[in-house]
Nucleic acid binder design. Structure first.
Lengths: 200, 200
DNA sequence: GTCTATACCACGATAGAC
DNA sequence: GTCTATCGTGGTATAGAC
């Protein structure tokens, strides 16, 4: 626990502000001067905490993935005995929590990763692969249990699901909408689709 | 038709190169010097064709939306008498064509719009709203015809579908994968979901 | 741990020759 | 229609005082 007079100290506070700005303005649009300004210090002072802008960027991305993985693991533990549909719902909700409720890190990773310098991307890829593997395992289990057809291309549909979930950072406002409802809608879409069962 | 000795002349060629670079490096990461370099001219010369970087950016975005709308209209004309599922498939395929087969404009719009200057975004929003309205109309028809349940929140599921389709620019390689297959997978996901009908 | 000061460079943009 | 040359600004990063 941090001391009471430093609610968000040092690296933590810088990363928090930086992540928010990476989301809003992109990697190159977010300047160190602006980040420092929002933190309440001068640009040069950032270099006491991070060796370069790329180092700060990498730290934000890694934290973002860490947040997703933690959320996934907790959902996994809580839902392992539930039916397939509820397991998916739990993990969708956890992913949304990482995007909207656990700081700006995951959202920064999802929106800014693509345009980051190749050097940064290459250090992050192995970490992000770890998260994808968690989902791959989950879907494989659902397939083996018969909840999903054996013939379904799981990797492809995992990417489609990620697309639906991650794109929500562009339009969902957690102050106006309800994340539980969104998780249910995404799960409905993923599990059952939109087609009417039997035309009345 | 352009004269034979100017395969991609003036504005057209600049926009083509710029769009590609906006995708790769983002709005602020793509510099006018680099764009000019790839076109084969000097940075100052760009200003004969566009009044500012923002003007070039806006032109790319508008073209990207135009491409999507044209693709949608063609798919609409070709599929209007088909069953609901096939109509969706036709429009999904058209959207993917806009993203991957009709130049880099639509992909640039989809990836770079969010971090563009507010001034640019505001001029583009009304145009993009036109495209969303086309999809809203389509889904409303499907709902009225009974193919989709009346209770389905169409706006929400449209956004989820857009998320799945647009995110493919981050992972789909048209040189390796097949766009028809991708369109079918996305349609399957959207229409039927992944759940097994009856456990065997 | 943060400051001031500054180096060096790339950015968008403009002016005028050709 | 493209060039060269250049202006002013703001970028990342460093050095050394405090």
């Amino acid at each position: 626990m941090a001391p009471a007079d430093t609610p968000l100290a040092g690296k933590q506070r810088i990363m928090d502000v930086a992540a928010g700005l990476f989301i809003e303005r992109g990697v190159d649009g977010a300047s160190l001067r602006q980040i420092a300004d929002l933190v309440g210090m001068k640009a040069g002072s950032l270099y006491y905490h991070f060796g370069s802008k790329n180092e700060l960027l990498s730290a934000v991305f890694e934290r973002g993935i860490e947040v997703m993985m933690t959320a996934f693991s907790e959902a996994n533990a809580a839902s392992s005995t539930l039916p397939g549909r509820d397991r998916v719902a739990a993990h969708v909700r956890a992913h949304l929590a990482a995007l909207f409720e656990n700081g700006p890190y995951t959202a920064a990773h999802v929106t800014a990763f693509r345009t980051a310098p190749a050097e940064v991307r290459h250090t992050i890829v192995p970490v992000r692969d770890g998260y994808e593997a968690m989902w791959a395992d989950l879907l494989r289990e659902l397939s083996h249990s018969g909840a999903i057809a054996e013939s379904t291309p799981l990797g492809l549909h995992r990417l489609l699901l990620f697309g639906s979930m991650n794109a929500s950072v562009e339009w969902f406002d957690p102050g106006r909408g309800n994340l539980d409802d969104l998780a249910i809608a995404i799960t409905n879409q993923f599990w059952d689709g939109l087609a009417q069962e039997a035309p009345a």
